[in-house]
Design a protein around this nucleic acid. Structure first.
Lengths: 251, 251
DNA sequence: AAGTGGTCTAGACCACAGA
DNA sequence: CTGTGGTCTAGACCACTTT
């Protein structure tokens, strides 16, 4: 006898799970996989079809997403298997707040400066505005467990974030931008450089001048691929590293 | 009148394109998109269906891949659009050789040491073998345009790469591993740290002691998710940076 | 209201792995 | 040979954007 489990279909009870079936299935499988040993086989796709009463393409959508997350891997002709646990799931756009929490640290923020001024040439190019357009600039020292971690300078197009300077800037800027201004930042381009700290940055971060650090220049884009935020961050190298999973391209 | 174009179907002429249709379509569209301005709309999915005589799921497979590459972006209810050109396509596993060529530099290699020894505790853990199992170790200075760029130490499980030390190690190790040993490295986990160079590394890289650098620790996995290679690389920060595109997760 | 991408189905055949 | 994942089809309906 086979066990049949049903994913909600939208016409169920009032609090039905309204996510697409493939997302529900993905979440469900993710939970089950956590209890399994690496390199053990998952049920076959056709088995999942009958167990969850969905079509095979829906099963494949869920499994493809899990493979993308690095949670399972597939071997043509053999099966789908639990991947070995990995340090960082993927390359996801995360806010400083989320990043620190994921590392088990308590994030904090101290605002050093907040002002409005013309963009200037470089920032204007990154944000695709003209150099005389005003931008809001926020300079913050971001801490983890109450010790300085990162020195951050954010630039936003002033016209698109009215009254930003009057809000609470102590938390996640991404959340604030989405909730208050409807700006959903879904993608970012980053350039990472290794540097030796100059006097000013070293003092603000509480380490000796010349200490190694990461310099990160980031431009974030919304769901229409418009640049909305340009940020420069300097991370203390003694407290911060980057974990990256990469895949080989097939093209 | 609509233009119809046909993708090869396998039963065509002898030199027919044997790739899946969605890959052919993806490559074709990629070429067309290069000629288009950013943010202009692609043909609709249903238009592509009739133009290329394929089903809509095939079209969607191709477009999904292009969206994944960051070449197009999709807006529900509105259309699929050409993305703004981006610095680095994605986070792909590339060899040093490929990486340098992509940057327009000529890669070179000087072998400093090549030997075989017990793995030791840390390397054994990374490669999931026992500390007494022998590993092959290659130390190479990798150059770009004939100037030092990176100091690299590769460790491989000796038993899986017999006679490696007698081969030409001047080129891409990934290519050698795949062609001669059938090891397809498809995934890697990396940890990037910013450091100040010690005396020895600085001399080998031709820069002053204390100069900033990237330290990269990488473990590569094959198509069965078995660790096959553990590598430590030190990159000169004055010549090297990392361009990274990230996306926001929806889960 | 019309048109777009997003989800889902049921079924078919192919390519590859493994006994 | 059997069973697996990979590709592909034709069609339906839903969710969303735009006019």
């Amino acid at each position: 006898m086979t066990t049949e489990e049903v994913l909600t279909d939208g016409d169920g009870p009032h609090d039905a799970d309204r996510r697409p079936k493939h997302e529900q299935l993905r979440a469900r499988l993710r939970g089950e996989i956590e209890l399994m040993k690496p390199h053990t086989a998952l049920p076959t796709e056709r088995e999942l079809v009958s167990r969850y009463q969905v079509s095979r393409s829906t099963v494949r959508q869920a499994l493809d997403a899990l493979a993308d997350d690095g949670i399972v891997y597939r071997v043509h002709g053999a099966g789908t298997f639990v991947a070995a646990p990995t340090i960082s799931k993927s390359h996801r756009l995360t806010s400083f707040t989320e990043d620190m929490r994921a590392r088990g640290l308590v994030p904090g923020t101290r605002l050093l400066a907040a002002d409005e001024a013309p963009a200037g040439r470089q920032i204007a190019e990154e944000l695709q505005i003209t150099p005389t357009d005003p931008v809001v600039r926020l300079v913050r020292v971001r801490s983890a467990d109450e010790r300085p971690m990162c020195l951050e300078t954010v630039q936003l197009v002033a016209e698109r974030v009215p009254d930003l300077l009057r809000r609470d800037l102590g938390g996640s800027l991404y959340v604030l931008l989405e909730n208050d201004y409807g700006l959903r930042l879904v993608r970012a381009e980053q350039v990472w450089t290794a540097i030796a700290l100059d006097d000013r940055s070293a003092v603000l971060l509480g380490v000796p001048t010349g200490s190694p650090a990461f310099l990160v220049q980031r431009t974030s884009f919304d769901d229409r691929d418009r640049p909305q935020e340009a940020t420069t961050s300097i991370y203390r190298a003694d407290r911060y590293n980057v974990r990256l999973n990469v895949r080989r391209s097939q093209s």
